[in-house]
């Protein structure tokens, strides 16, 4: 069935909650209102106020209590209303959720899925546009999932909920209504840590994750018309990371463009680039290139400034074309 990225989130939550009575959802406005983006719309009606709860406006409490609830046998899927507001909960996510299995020598585990809408291009300005994945990708014990398509949303969200460890599930706000795709009715899982070649190509490899995969695919489409063959690798999860798939595409085309919306310095693109430099340098025909958000504190509001920040299909196209000609 064709559906939007947002519908894929909602229908997957519904299907999972029907399957597993341990799943609970809570966060700010997720109940009666169905979430500010409508990701949980109708779920409280179907599953009741015990399983879909409006919580106090307190991110540390939302995550901290989810940790306790998970340890006491539930499968919490808390929502952080905007990824930008996850920072009050960093202590609970990084120091507690991510370290509990390790510090208890494997005796305790924290199976929670933290859903958080991220990313810009929706006039959200500095505090409703951020890409936050690099902060969390640094943390062993966490998993960080960033789907680009409705199909991947479903398989990755179901797999995240089944996972025994804490997962940060980042949904791009721009994708919610603009990205549509076919999603099978039946349940399926996409293993965390498996990248996917979304488009085969021979001249240049674009490696990306989340929404910029879609922008990269558009750029690749345009470049094909100009005789440039672009391969697009969607990492889908950045922790665990599919190193093999990264090295494979790098060796195949010999030219790599890493694309992300998060700002450049210390962004996850640096990690991808380092891996290629370490393990595939002599297969390269050009220096690795990164295209990312600029190093300004966050995305500004005015459309002209917002557009200047964003990593658009046009910018990707230009960068990939340039690289192909190297």
């Amino acid at each position: 069935m064709a559906m939007t990225y947002l519908e894929a989130v909602r229908e997957t939550l519904r299907q999972e909650m029907r399957r597993d009575a341990r799943i609970i959802i809570y966060g700010e406005d997720v109940g009666v209102r169905g979430g500010v983006f409508r990701a949980t719309e109708g779920l409280q009606d179907e599953f009741g106020e015990d399983r879909v709860m409006d919580s106090p406006l307190a991110e540390s409490a939302i995550i901290g209590t989810a940790i306790g609830a998970a340890i006491n046998g539930l499968r919490p899927v808390p929502e952080i209303q905007f990824a930008d507001f996850i920072f009050p909960a960093v202590n609970q996510i990084v120091q507690e959720a991510a370290r509990i299995r390790y510090r208890s020598n494997g005796t305790f585990g924290v199976p929670i899925v933290i859903r958080a809408p991220y990313g810009g291009g929706i006039h959200g300005a500095l505090y409703h546009s951020q890409s936050i994945e690099a902060f969390f990708a640094h943390v062993p014990g966490l998993k960080v999932v960033m789907p680009a398509t409705p199909y991947d949303v479903k398989g990755l969200l179901a797999a995240s909920i089944e996972d025994e460890d804490p997962v940060l599930f980042l949904e791009h706000k721009g994708a919610y209504r603009s990205i549509r795709g076919d999603v099978p009715d039946e349940r399926y899982l996409i293993p965390l840590g498996e990248a996917e070649v979304k488009r085969e190509g021979t001249d240049v490899s674009i490696i990306s994750w989340g929404m910029t995969v879609n922008s990269s695919l558009k750029a690749a489409e345009n470049l094909a018309k100009q005789g440039v063959s672009v391969e697009v690798l969607d990492l889908r999860t950045i922790r665990p990371l599919d190193t093999e798939a990264i090295l494979k595409t790098a060796k195949k085309t010999g030219k790599v463009l890493v694309v992300h919306e998060d700002n450049l310095t210390g962004g996850f693109g640096g990690e991808v680039s380092a891996l290629i430099a370490e393990h595939a340098l002599f297969h390269l025909d050009a220096p690795i290139r990164r295209l990312a958000g600029p190093d300004v504190p966050a995305m500004p509001y005015a459309p002209s400034l917002e557009h200047a920040f964003l990593v658009t299909p046009e910018k990707i196209e230009a960068a990939a074309k340039d690289l192909a000609a190297f």
Binding site: I24, N72, I100
Partner: peptide, 22 residues
């Protein structure tokens, strides 16, 4: 299991209690 960051544990007790209640 206990970490070193003081007071985080209060939230975990609330969460255990939440699960018990549900």
């Amino acid at each position: 299991t206990t970490g070193s960051v003081v007071t985080t544990q209060m939230m975990h007790a609330a969460g255990i209690a939440l699960a018990a209640k549900l």
